[in-house]
């Protein structure tokens, strides 16, 4: 579990440095695979967790990256050129976030938990949020959103051994639908604006 948590932190760190859309999606794929592995490790043979692990592989390692890569393959000229916060600053912020999450959970949460997993999950949430705020490319923002989702999923896993089955199924369904909706919108952005750089979306004001 600890090894996985550290690998997850590493993947989130890598995301802050990615500027090619395809590599960002590939990192996301690896990250989701690690979340699935963490789920399987934590399961201890319980059926519910194994199903969740299989669903994570199916949806977050299979369907979602596939859909995103299909969009990316049509966006040949798009890449994250001039993010609001550059890769160096983002990496630094991510490192600060990781230190901060360790400091925070040390104080607030009572014992009996796998610290590294909790810290890693909160760091994933923070780094995902940072990607959404500072990246201009639509695909990058979607990657950020799923990173947050992965972080929250890991948090649920490490603190309470996952949410009840029916709620988890609902969340998986929501993630899947959310990505489909976002992919539709990204395609439309490409059609209407000839670009998926979301910084051009600033006409509506006041």
């Amino acid at each position: 579990m600890q090894v996985l948590a550290i690998l997850l932190l590493f993947s989130a760190f890598l995301l802050t440095r990615a500027s090619r859309l395809a590599s960002a999606v590939h990192i996301l794929l690896a990250q989701s695979a690690m979340v699935a592995a963490a789920c399987a490790v934590e399961s201890g043979g319980s059926m519910h967790m194994l199903i969740a692990a299989v669903l994570t592989v199916l949806i977050k390692v299979g369907l979602i990256p596939k859909a995103l890569l299909r969009v990316v393959s049509q966006l040949k000229r798009e890449r994250e050129v001039d993010p609001i916060m550059g890769p160096n600053a983002s990496s630094l912020a991510a490192a600060a976030a990781i230190v901060m999450t360790y400091a925070v959970i040390d104080r607030t949460l009572p014992g009996g938990l796998s610290w590294d997993a909790v810290a890693a999950s909160l760091a994933l949430v923070f780094i995902g949020l940072m990607l959404i705020i500072t990246r201009r490319q639509a695909i990058m923002q979607i990657v950020g959103l799923i990173t947050i989702e992965n972080g929250l999923y890991l948090l649920g896993l490490s603190t309470t051994h996952g949410l009840p089955m029916i709620i988890e199924l609902g969340i998986f369904f929501d993630v899947l639908v959310a990505v489909s909706v976002l992919v539709i919108l990204t395609n439309r952005l490409k059609k209407s604006f000839q670009s998926t750089d979301t910084s051009i979306l600033k006409k509506l004001k006041g």
């Binding site: 959404i132 923002q141 909706v181 979306l201």
Partner: peptide, 10 residues
């Protein structure tokens, strides 16, 4: 409409 929807969903 696309701009509004993108902001809304994000």
């Amino acid at each position: 409409a696309l701009e509004a929807a993108w902001k809304y969903v994000m």
